[in-house]
């Protein structure tokens, strides 16, 4: 079973849900893989604190133009959708950070003046903690191309009874790449107008991908009614509600996990785990 944890809005509690779920699943002796796909700022390690076992770089192919061969015909600039290769004046400029590594410029070059060179953009890391296999990707500073890094991370992830994919916030390409291939997605939301607004966007995105989803309302209280109504109208079930509790926020601020802090939260995550096991 591969579960994506996504949200739409940032800061609703994706990592809280993903890490605590991983912890209780390992406590229940399931084989668990936790993938931190928020490669711009992977923070699952703050809570799970894995022992690092390996690191490896992620490289992407980017074009290099041999100006001795190039006759400045401009074909490469025509095919590039991202202005990553620009024939101008007597030069061909390459902007590696805009390159999506599609290889189109190399294919259309009539003189084979373009070769591809690897460019390091991120580092993958793997580790282990208390029966949880931990994997994350981390983009190098200044890099923006997260989908290929997420793809590389998913490619090295081992199989397990439960694979938890902690997705980045938002509803754009990185989220799509993270949750693609998941059996089900948990959308973590908070009962605020922003949380509600972005939850609806996330429901649309996950729906378009043809993946079933349920909702976790984090910091839930009396103000959760609008969220519950949205779920009712959409026919989407609420998998769990996590109450707004100061002791949990305090533990979080120390980098401690809810299930280790509060027996009630432990029970709630165990119930969520049982529910997930019921999906397969």
């Amino acid at each position: 079973m591969r579960i994506g944890i996504a949200s739409g809005k940032g800061g609703t509690g994706k990592t809280t849900v993903a890490t605590n779920l991983a912890r209780v699943a390992a406590m229940e002796h399931l084989s668990v893989v936790y993938l931190d796909c928020d490669v711009e700022e992977p923070n699952g390690q703050i809570f799970l604190r894995p022992e690092v076992k390996w690191r490896r770089p992620v490289t992407l192919p980017v074009p290099r133009v041999d100006l001795e061969v190039c006759d400045l015909c401009g074909e490469c600039g025509e095919i590039c959708e991202f202005s990553a290769i620009v024939p101008i004046g007597k030069k061909v400029l390459v902007f590696p950070q805009l390159c999506h590594s599609c290889g189109g410029c190399r294919l259309v070059c009539p003189l084979q003046a373009i070769t591809e060179i690897p460019r390091e953009v991120a580092t993958l890391m793997g580790g282990e903690v208390g029966g949880v296999e931990y994997l994350q990707g981390l983009l190098n500073i200044g890099e923006a191309m997260s989908p290929p890094v997420i793809r590389a991370l998913k490619a090295v992830a081992p199989q397990a009874e439960l694979v938890i994919v902690d997705a980045p916030p938002g509803t754009s390409c990185p989220v799509v790449e993270a949750v693609r291939g998941c059996d089900r997605v948990l959308l973590v939301t908070e009962p605020t107008p922003f949380g509600l607004h972005d939850l609806e966007l996330a429901m649309d995105t996950i729906g378009k991908l043809g993946i079933g989803c349920e909702v976790v309302i984090n910091r839930a209280g009396a103000n959760g009614e609008a969220t519950r109504e949205l779920c009712r109208n959409r026919g989407i079930e609420i998998a769990a509600e996590l109450p707004d509790r100061r002791s949990i926020a305090e533990a979080y601020s120390r980098g401690e996990m809810a299930v280790d802090t509060d027996p009630d939260f432990c029970d709630r995550f165990l119930a969520l785990l049982r529910r997930i096991e019921g999906w397969s």
Partner: peptide, 13 residues
């Protein structure tokens, strides 16, 4: 969405 500066530079050039 992206590469606006590059394309604008080409336009004026």
């Amino acid at each position: 969405g992206h590469g606006a500066g590059i394309q604008a530079a080409r336009l004026v050039a």
